[in-house]
Structures are given as structure tokens and as C-alpha cells.
Design a binder for these strands. Structure first.
Lengths: 236, 236
DNA sequence: CGGTCCTTTGAGGTTGATCAACGCGAGTGG
DNA sequence: CCACTCGCGTTGATCAACCTCAAAGGACCG
């Protein structure tokens, strides 16, 4: 059965959540649940697939679900002081979105899909119930909040500080665990710009320049880096 | 009895924590504890007074205390990409510092006192113990983490976005609940700069300019604002 | 093959960083 | 009491970084 978001794109239901088979079980929000918890999860948590450019939820809208990312890439935007959208952070598999619902009725960000994303849709109600008799879950929630804080701090100190060149170098290094980035973690110029607080053109110019200088080789949405040199630039 | 910080300034112990008399009890971390909890708190939590410019803790240093701010103002710095210190957020009464210790051994930020600050020094160990038999406390911790996240997001969308003028307008409005700011919430040019990611000189120039245009009147560390006009500027 | 989406590039203007000097009030010590 | 210093704020000149507006190139798709 498919369901539809408020803006009309079709979201596929993949199945019921089975933590045992979860690709991110250790890092996920509910992975540590006990047998009783698992039962409740199977009954209440669906796995959904969101295509690129769909919205998971909107800033200031009311909601009753928290989302745990199984795969894909999501950007969290918030309206900035000048009324435009500023990307506050990227969310990767293992991250939980919407935990702010534990204390308020509405989402703090607009969550938009950058790469096709599978996520577990968890009713906040379930989270509250489970928490009452499982202190491990409370721990897990805290851990995920800390993860959000760390990501926010990273955004401030690494991605909103220094020259455009340095910010880009830091982002590229951050997005790529190893020496290359595959299409999976590719994000387009506009989103890089939104994340760094610079314009799309500046991003394009800077990356082009890095390519000319041989720091970056790009082959169909796939970067290869001169990592040491990028690190040098990142530390400026 | 006084104790000394690692950098030699004397920190005064004011007394044992008595939540009943706490100026920020409703907002504080432990305010909702039950009778048993109160007893444990009295025995384990001290109230300390940190003078201006003292350090509460340092980034990456190990620690075993979480701090709940009763009064004063604290800046949280983190080393930025270029090696300099970037102010990540300001912490005001009711805020809890160092909650990251619940999951790791070391602090994420350097906490520096901007205005003389009283805080409750809470052993993380106590926090863990209390949490096991009081789910309200778990809630309280989560709430405080959410508060940190909100502050971080504010820093990104409001204070690291837009022109220097707009950022300053937003900060000034944010720091002042009402039409004026008293000396209590005054912070100096250097810290405004660190918070906004601009230079001290730019802050000075911009504020001087605002004064000349009559948007701001400053009388010994005490601003009075033309609030509507500042709000107009903030939305640019 | 025409259209759409993303990226690249250019020209010109603005903003803010940098370096440097000076002002000014609050201590501090002779 | 005065001279000195120190911390903080202000101001100026110059230059690099970045934004804005505009146009054009390339990839992908129906």
C-alpha cells in the first residue's frame, strides 16, 4: 500500500520494521529494543521509501512521527533570518529526525530528500511508551540527540567559518570517508551552497578552480581527491 | 571552602544545592527531582561562583561534571576549521552544560565565563544514578539537549547568515527580551564578533553606524533600541 | 530535437578582512 | 596626584573575497 504526502508525490511503503535485518541496527534508534519492544515495533513502525526531492515533513507543521534513516541522504532546512532557507545539517543513515516532537507538537525543520531514502516511521507515542519500561531506549534517544548537537556544532565551526574555499574543502572531506566520493554521497552545487552559507556561483567557481589545480578530479558525479592538499586548505 | 581551577583563578563554593530555593528551578535540570533525589542532590551537588573570564572546562578535556547555570552568562567555544576559536553558542540561566559527558569522557566545548556565573556542579555519576529510578529526570535531560539543539540552530540560521548588519541586529534583539538591554546581558565586541563569525572591527563599525543613525542609543554598557527598525534590518 | 535542469563563466559592484593607528576610561604604582 | 599601562572601542585605507545579474554550455529525457 502506498501513501501520499501532502504535496502529491507517492511514497512507497516497503514493509514493517524488522530491526533484526536493519542495515543500521547498531546505530539506529530502536536497535537495542528487547523482545517485547520488537513486537511493538513490528506492529507500529513502517519502512517507507522517499524519492529524491520529496519532503518528509515541513518546518512548523504538526506531526506525530519520528524518522530513523536506514539509507539515503536528507537535508534539514530552516528559514533563516532573511527569509530564505538555510540548510542546517545533512542527515545520514543511522540518524533520527524529528526528535523535537518529544517536547512539542511541530517539527523544527523542513526535511527534504537529496538521495532516495528509506526510513523507519516511528510514532512518537510508541517512543514514549517504550521509554517508560526500557531505560536503554532513553539512552538511545539521548545518544541520537547528542548526535544532532554534534552535527550542528560541526556546521557552525567547520562549514560556516572561514573562506569559501576552506569550507568546501572541509565539506568534501567530511562527505567522503575514504579517498573518493561515490554518486551516493554526491550533492549538487545549490545544496553545497545552502550548507556553507555562500552562493551557488561561488561554489561552482571554487570547485572548478580546484579541478584546474588538480585537487579534485570529477568523473560523472564522482569525485577523487588530493586529500593531503585539501586538508591543508581546510585548515586555513 | 574554595577550590581552584587548573588555570589558577579562585572559584568560590557558595553552598550545597537546594533546588527549593533555586532561581531557575522550573527550567533547571534537577528541579523536578523527588524527595529522595533532593537528598542525593544536597549531598553531591555544589553551587559554585565563577568570576568573569574564568574557564569552567576546556574542549577535549576529560571531566565528570555537568553544570547547570543559575545566573550569569557563559560562552561555549569550539576550535574552528582554521584553528581559531569560534563561539558556538551562549549559555544563559536554566541551561545545562556538558551533557555530552553522558556518552563520552570529554567535553565538546570550552566554556568561558562572560558575566560572573553561579552554577550547580552535578556529578555525571549522580545523573546516571538518578535517571535509573526517575523517568522525569530522563525527560528533563532530553529537554535540555533539545534546548542546546535549538540554540545551535539559531546560531546557524540567525547569527551565521546574512550581512554583518543583519546578524548584529538579530543578536541584539535576541539578547534583549524587552526594549533595552542592561549591563547584565552586555557582551563585548570581540565576543559579538566570535558569535557572528565576523571581525571585531566590523562589529564596531556597524554598531557605531547604527548609533549614528539613531537605531541604538548606548549609555555605559546599556543599549536602548529602535526595535521596529532593527527588526526590519534583521529580516534582510 | 527541443526543453529542462544543473553547471560554468564573466563583468562589475559590495562587503568585509586586514593592518595600523588612535581614543579613552580604569586601574596601578611612584 | 600624575604618568603609565592595559583593555576595549573606534576609525581609516587598502585589498581580497564574495555577491549579483547575466549569459551560455553540457547532460539528460521525453
Amino acid at each position: 500500500m502506498d501513501c501520499r504526502t501532502d504535496h502529491g508525490r507517492s511514497i512507497k511503503r516497503i514493509g514493517a520494521a524488522e530491526c533484526v535485518h536493519c542495515p543500521v541496527r547498531e546505530r539506529g534508534l530502536l536497535g537495542q529494543a528487547d523482545a517485547n519492544g520488537m513486537m511493538a515495533i513490528r506492529a507500529n513502525v513502517d519502512i517507507l521509501r522517499f524519492p529524491v526531492r520529496t519532503r518528509i515533513y515541513a518546518e512548523k507543521s504538526a506531526g506525530e512521527y519520528v524518522y530513523s534513516i536506514r539509507s539515503g541522504l536528507v537535508k534539514l532546512e530552516q528559514q533563516s533570518g532573511d527569509g530564505r532557507a538555510r540548510i542546517v545539517r545533512l542527515a545520514t543513515p543511522g540518524t533520527t529526525l524529528g526528535l523535537e516532537l518529544l517536547f512539542g507538537a511541530s517539527y523544527r525543520h523542513t526535511a527534504l530528500v537529496l538521495h532516495s531514502t528509506d526510513l523507519c516511521r516511528i510514532p512518537v507515542r510508541l517512543l514514549r511508551t517504550l521509554r517508560d519500561d526500557q531505560k536503554e531506549l532513553c539512552d538511545s534517544v539521548l545518544r541520537h540527540m547528542q548526535q544532532n548537537i554534534d552535527a550542528a556544532d560541526f556546521e557552525i565551526t567547520q562549514l560556516s567559518t572561514g573562506t569559501a574555499q576552506a569550507r568546501i574543502a572541509r565539506l568534501l572531506l567530511h562527505l567522503s570517508a575514504d579517498n573518493a566520493t561515490d554518486a551516493r554521497q554526491w550533492i549538487m552545487r545549490e545544496d553545497i551552497a545552502g550548507l556553507l552559507g555562500v552562493t551557488l556561483e561561488t561554489v561552482s567557481r571554487t570547485i572548478s578552480d580546484m579541478k584546474r589545480r588538480g585537487l579534485i578530479t570529477e568523473e560523472q558525479h564522482h569525485f577523487v581527491f588530493d586529500r593531503p592538499e585539501l586538508e591543508r586548505i581546510a585548515n586555513c
